Simulated assay, not measured.
Amino acid sequence: MDIENGNVDQNTDPIEIIYEDEFLVAINKEAGLLVHRSWLDKGETRFALQLTRDAVGCHVFPVHRLDRPTSGVLLFAKSSSVARSLTEAFTERKVTKHYLAVVRGYMPEQGSIDHALSFKPDAIADKFASLDKPAQEAVTHWQSLAQIELSFAVSRKHDTSRYSLIRLIPETGRKHQLRRHMKHLFHPIVGDTSHGDGRHNRFFRSQYDCTRMLLHAQTLALSHPVTGEPLLLKAGLDDQWMRILEEFDWVESVEGLVPY
């Protein structure tokens, strides 16, 4: 089943539901929205979990996560039993995730990075977590979709600046995996204030009014936990993403994608 992105008026609906049945609901999470309440952000009042629950009229259970600055497909279960099944599917790598990202520099056409990631605790959320955890296996695959060279000297070392539009396919699901892997490869994601390059982030804010991290969970493919039917969930891109794609003439690179 191919679930296309819906057109929802954001002025009347606080979230965009892209799929729903009696067992599941998937939304297109906006950038900057927390999945659930956190001690790190006590002042926040909007959360994906509560907004989804209110929209569908029943309790929902998170089965995976997206970082706050990441947008895209976020899946919830409507019961604890379905949540357990989905969590197992994610753990057993039976769910395929495709992300879009804009990174600094020219990425090779395709490749993989197998680089273990150490545990990085949050000051408050992981206050009581053990710091002796060994580094965890982390594998990410990528495909370069488009490239551009701009006549702006963002770095003092170069007269021009280069960027790539890439598709990222994580094989594992470690904390901040894609962001940390791109940093490790010296191709940080544009707009990433934790693992990115501040000069390029500022350039995108001032030149293109892009105030978000350019990482988007575009598709999620899995077998339905109850019916076994294949599901392909898709999340559309927001205005800031579309502005960059249009400015760089990358729209066709995304529209021509064959997800699977």
Rank of each mutant, 00 (worst) to 15 (best):
S151C: 09
G105V: 06
H141C: 03
P121D: 11
L150W: 12
A146I: 05
A135N: 09
Y99V: 08
S81K: 12
H184A: 08
A77I: 09
R156A: 11
I169M: 14
S164I: 02
K175I: 05
H98A: 07
S118Y: 12
S164M: 04
V103R: 01
I124Q: 08
A125P: 05
A89M: 14
S80L: 07
I113V: 15
S85F: 06
H141L: 06
G111A: 10
K78C: 10
R167N: 03
D159T: 14
E109R: 15
S144T: 15
D126V: 09
G105C: 08
I169E: 04
A116K: 13
M182A: 00
G173V: 03
A135I: 08
S130G: 11
E137G: 08
H176K: 00
E109A: 15
D126R: 10
R84D: 13
E137Q: 12
R162D: 02
H184P: 00
A101K: 01
G105W: 01
M107S: 01
Q143Y: 11
D114A: 15
T140Q: 04
I124M: 12
T91S: 14
S81I: 12
S164R: 04
G173C: 04
G111Y: 09
E109P: 08
A77R: 02
S144E: 09
L100P: 00
S79N: 10
S155T: 08
I124T: 10
A83Y: 00
F119Q: 05
L131Y: 10
K78D: 00
M182H: 00
K175V: 07
G111I: 08
Q147N: 14
L150I: 15
A77D: 05
K183A: 05
A138D: 05
A83T: 04
V102L: 12
K97I: 05
L178A: 01
R179V: 01
V95T: 11
S161L: 06
E92Q: 15
T96I: 13
L185C: 05
S112I: 11
I169G: 01
P134W: 02
K157H: 10
E92I: 04
V102D: 02
L145G: 01
E92T: 14
H184L: 09
G173L: 03
D132R: 15
M107C: 03
V154R: 03
Q177A: 03
D122K: 15
S130L: 14
A135F: 07
A135Y: 07
L100S: 03
T96L: 14
Y163C: 00
S112M: 14
H141K: 10
K157F: 14
L75R: 03
S85Y: 09
L117V: 13
A83W: 02
Q177V: 01
A123W: 08
Q143R: 15
D114E: 15
K183E: 04
Y163E: 00
D122V: 13
A83D: 02
L117M: 11
H115M: 11
D122C: 13
K127W: 12
P134G: 03
A125G: 09
S164H: 04
Q143C: 12
V154K: 04
L74F: 05
